[in-house]
């Protein structure tokens, strides 16, 4: 390494002579970081999304490469958030890629002390049977004065408020058609 290169490699020199007198940008960059590329540049695709935590509704850009989420950033175009995310929004890549995420159906038999596996299709079929049975066992056509009730109080639901509008819509529609009333949401709590 020549003396000139050595001196130019020295951040203080670059800070004093270059365009970055405060030493917060180019002057402070190491040789290693100069060779790095941002994950956002090499991503295969980017989806425009919204933070799933609080109701501020910060815009997110979700970057995907090789079928994996590689980065989630604030959307600078958003008039709500102007590109910012708080600690939770910033951790949402960590949320969707968390090693603790469950990705298979788990089943606990009555009186069991452990989980077992179950395939999704069987689980769906079992749940459908249980809904139909609970409904049949608890169905109320009318009250004791003969007024229409047309309902079941045999099963209930409590939903979180990270459900999409479209999801809430089909949940309410299906449950109402089944005559189920006890559908509740975090919005009550």
């Amino acid at each position: 390494m020549g003396l000139k290169t050595f001196i130019e490699g020295w951040p203080v020199y670059r800070q004093l002579t270059g365009t970055d007198p405060l030493g917060r940008g180019a002057a402070a960059q190491s040789a290693r970081s100069a060779t790095l590329t941002a994950r956002t540049e090499t991503a295969d695709s980017m989806a425009r999304s919204v933070c799933p935590y609080c109701a501020v509704g910060c815009g997110q850009r979700v970057f995907v490469k090789d079928g994996q989420v590689t980065q989630i950033e604030g959307d600078p175009d958003s008039p709500i958030s102007r590109g910012r995310l708080c600690p939770k929004g910033s951790a949402s890549k960590n949320l969707v890629t968390s090693p603790l995420r469950e990705t298979t159906v788990r089943y606990r038999r009555p009186y069991a002390t452990e989980w077992e596996d179950l395939d999704l299709e069987t689980a769906m079929d079992m749940i459908a049977d249980r809904v139909i049975a609970a409904r049949d066992e608890t169905w109320e056509d009318t009250d004791d004065q003969g007024r229409v009730l047309n309902r079941t109080l045999g099963f209930a639901s409590l939903g979180g408020a990270t459900l999409d509008n479209e999801e809430n819509y089909v949940i309410k529609k299906l449950f109402t058609a089944l005559g189920a009333l006890q559908i509740e949401n975090q919005a009550r709590i």
Binding site: C54, V56, A161, N165, N168, K172, L181
Partner: peptide, 17 residues
């Protein structure tokens, strides 16, 4: 200031009894 991403939506298109 509502506390969840779509808690307003969950009231508008309610999953409420």
């Amino acid at each position: 200031l509502r506390g969840h991403a779509s808690i307003q939506g969950s009231t508008d298109i309610p999953t409420l009894f």
